[in-house]
């Protein structure tokens, strides 16, 4: 009995902690929005962060996109060939990518490549009192350090996701048409006939924008909230990747239900 009570108490404490943290994140988010004026007046600050978050993630995102597209084509061919529907390969590859894999995998890669870097950088700036130094110099660190990184991430991720999908489709084309020998005309033609730019592509883009806000917010928050020690920063970096991944997948489920439920009923 006492063990049950202890278990429940722990559950209660964990829930309260989680809600408290959610409250902090929300307040932090509004603080970022309030302090975003600097990023607008001095776009150079954001450009630098787009370089750090976006340009430096280009290689990994594009390579992953290409390979995933090629694997999709290979696996898809296996299945489609059983039904004699190999000309639908373009549809399969394109829909999987623009609706799901593009936004989700690009966001996961972004969280581990750029998100963790943002967390580590802000955490380290906190540890070495750089943020405190700014504050004493009458410069708000949220405006000067946090907001540009946040917006840099928000702008970068949707572009990365689009590049991921594009290279994935190209990878599917390489394997499907060039390697396996499906007719190129039906590959592209079927794809264009079945992929709707508003229904499929715009919803994919909206997904990646939502993920961009979530991952960027998690990354800057964990950095700003990190314990100012070496262990604190490394723990925060790990938390960024784990929390981002879970958030992306949970949000993906919710968004998919809302966006594509027309296909279910």
């Amino acid at each position: 009995m006492s063990m049950l009570a202890r278990l429940l108490r722990r559950l209660g404490r964990a829930s309260i902690g989680a809600i408290e943290r959610l409250g902090f994140v929300t307040r932090f988010y509004f603080a970022i929005l309030r302090q975003s004026g600097t990023s607008v007046v001095r776009p150079q600050l954001v450009v630098k962060e787009i370089y750090q978050a976006g340009v430096l993630s280009l290689i990994i995102v594009m390579m992953s996109g290409l390979f995933i597209g090629m694997v999709l084509a290979l696996q898809g061919y296996e299945t489609l060939a059983r039904f004699g529907a190999t000309e639908s390969m373009g549809v399969l590859v394109a829909l999987s990518l623009v609706r799901e894999l593009g936004p989700v995998v690009a966001a996961l890669l972004f969280a581990s490549r750029a998100g963790s870097a943002i967390t580590a950088e802000i955490g380290l700036m906190k540890t070495t009192e750089q943020l405190a130094a700014m504050e004493v110099m009458a410069v708000d660190p949220i405006a000067r350090v946090v907001a540009p990184r946040f917006w840099g991430g928000v702008i970068s991720l949707p572009l990365l996701a689009a590049l991921f999908s594009m290279l994935g489709v190209y990878g599917g084309y390489l394997v499907g048409v060039q390697l396996i020998g499906i007719d190129g005309g039906s590959f592209w033609g079927q794809m264009q006939a079945s992929v709707d730019w508003r229904y499929d592509i715009m919803n994919g883009v909206i997904k990646s924008i939502v993920f961009a806000f979530a991952v960027s917010l998690i990354a800057v928050f964990e950095g700003y909230d990190a314990k100012p020690t070496a262990e604190g920063v490394s723990a925060a970096t790990t938390r960024t990747v784990v929390t981002s991944a879970l958030t992306i997948l949970a949000l993906d489920f919710v968004l998919t239900v809302f966006m594509f439920r027309g296909g279910i009923n």
Partner: peptide
């Protein structure tokens, strides 16, 4: 704070 200058323990230079 603009009239203050503060030197931090380990300098706190922006890396």
């Amino acid at each position: 704070r603009r009239r203050l200058g503060m030197l931090f323990q380990f300098g706190a230079l922006f890396t």
